[in-house]
Simulated assay, not measured.
Amino acid sequence: MVGFPNWCDRAAEDVGAHALELITARAADIAHGSAAVAAIVPEHYAAEEHVARILRRLGRPKTAAFIEGKLPTTKQIRSGDLGEILATEYIAAGTQYAAPIKRLRWKDHRNMAMRGDDVIGLYRDPATGHLRFLKTEAKSRATLPGGVLTEARAGLDKDGGLPSAHALEFIADRLMEAGNNDLADAIDDALLKHGIAPQSVKHLLFTLSGNNPANLLRANLQGYGGGFSQLYVGIRIDPHGAFIAGVYDQVIANANNG
């Protein structure tokens, strides 16, 4: 976990019937935050068991080469990936939902963005046994413009506001491969047996930026007229680009130095 409270200030507010949370990195604690994020990045690109096996069989230098070969090298893809990584970590630590699949492990190429829903959180209702879903769009920009929020809003509204069947089938397949048949069956039941009710879906619009996103997020949320419950989360890390570069540099250094 990245432990946001250890290096960030947090402020939450209601915007109508919806929620907005702002998470701002403290300048004095940026180095701590960078180290915490760097520590969890590798597991988003490769299974920990795979890394451990390479380490046992081939040693530290080959393990470091394997990890570095998984990491994107372009600023744009690193930025987008880190936005998705932090969104996944936020879901795991800050909501009732679980994000059981780290989908960056299945990228076609390290310098390509993945298509489809960025992250889908899952929560099994203890009363019904049915799943509830957190459909997520994550965006990362040094300076966040309003147009990016419009783009994210369109992504959340796609497929009638529901998580796409393709994205859920992907998650179910990966869960089956990992031996988590129970949760995979619950996804299949949602898709094929009882359907996904709109009231079982919540939206998360998640941003990572260098500028303060509060007014943009608040205005976009105020303009939402749909029927899905909304959670908007904006993380501000200044300087944005240097933080991302530092995280990936630290990941490589950690892999080489153990």
Score class of each variant (00 low, 15 high):
residue 203 H to Y: 09
residue 193 K to V: 15
residue 166 H to R: 11
residue 187 I to A: 08
residue 188 D to I: 08
residue 139 K to T: 03
residue 179 G to L: 07
residue 169 E to A: 07
residue 148 V to M: 06
residue 168 L to K: 10
residue 163 P to G: 06
residue 180 N to I: 06
residue 193 K to H: 11
residue 176 M to S: 14
residue 159 D to K: 04
residue 194 H to T: 09
residue 184 A to T: 04
residue 187 I to H: 12
residue 176 M to V: 14
residue 167 A to G: 13
residue 169 E to P: 00
residue 147 G to C: 03
residue 146 G to L: 00
residue 178 A to W: 03
residue 150 T to F: 12
residue 157 D to E: 14
residue 166 H to M: 13
residue 147 G to L: 09
residue 157 D to I: 01
residue 137 E to H: 10
residue 196 I to R: 09
residue 200 S to E: 05
residue 180 N to L: 05
residue 149 L to M: 11
residue 181 N to H: 13
residue 177 E to H: 07
residue 177 E to D: 11
residue 174 R to A: 11
residue 192 L to Q: 11
residue 190 A to W: 03
residue 197 A to Q: 06
residue 200 S to F: 03
residue 146 G to I: 05
residue 172 A to K: 04
residue 175 L to G: 08
residue 171 I to F: 12
residue 138 A to F: 06
residue 141 R to M: 12
residue 198 P to A: 03
residue 144 L to I: 01
residue 190 A to T: 07
residue 143 T to D: 14
residue 150 T to P: 03
residue 140 S to W: 04
residue 155 G to N: 11
residue 178 A to T: 09
residue 146 G to R: 02
residue 156 L to P: 02
residue 179 G to K: 06
residue 157 D to Q: 10
residue 174 R to D: 06
residue 179 G to I: 08
residue 198 P to Y: 09
residue 198 P to R: 10
residue 162 L to S: 01
residue 191 L to E: 07
residue 138 A to Y: 06
residue 152 A to N: 02
residue 188 D to R: 15
residue 195 G to Y: 05
residue 155 G to W: 02
residue 147 G to E: 14
residue 175 L to S: 05
residue 147 G to S: 12
residue 158 K to G: 08
residue 164 S to D: 09
residue 156 L to G: 01
residue 165 A to F: 02
residue 160 G to T: 01
residue 143 T to V: 15
residue 203 H to D: 02
residue 155 G to P: 02
residue 180 N to D: 15
residue 188 D to H: 15
residue 170 F to C: 04
residue 154 A to S: 10
residue 196 I to S: 06
residue 202 K to C: 05
residue 144 L to M: 03
residue 198 P to D: 07
residue 138 A to V: 05
residue 178 A to M: 14
residue 188 D to N: 15
residue 200 S to H: 12
residue 155 G to I: 05
residue 199 Q to E: 10
residue 186 A to Q: 15
residue 175 L to P: 12
residue 164 S to C: 10
residue 159 D to W: 07
residue 201 V to Y: 07
residue 184 A to I: 01
residue 192 L to E: 09
residue 139 K to D: 00
residue 197 A to I: 06
residue 172 A to D: 07
residue 154 A to G: 01
residue 195 G to S: 14
residue 190 A to D: 11
residue 172 A to M: 03
residue 173 D to Q: 09
residue 170 F to M: 08
residue 137 E to I: 10
residue 150 T to G: 13
residue 160 G to L: 09
residue 170 F to V: 01
residue 141 R to Q: 14
residue 188 D to K: 13
residue 201 V to W: 02
residue 196 I to N: 03
residue 183 L to F: 10
residue 182 D to E: 14
residue 160 G to H: 02
residue 151 E to Q: 14
residue 154 A to E: 04
residue 199 Q to I: 07
residue 183 L to P: 13
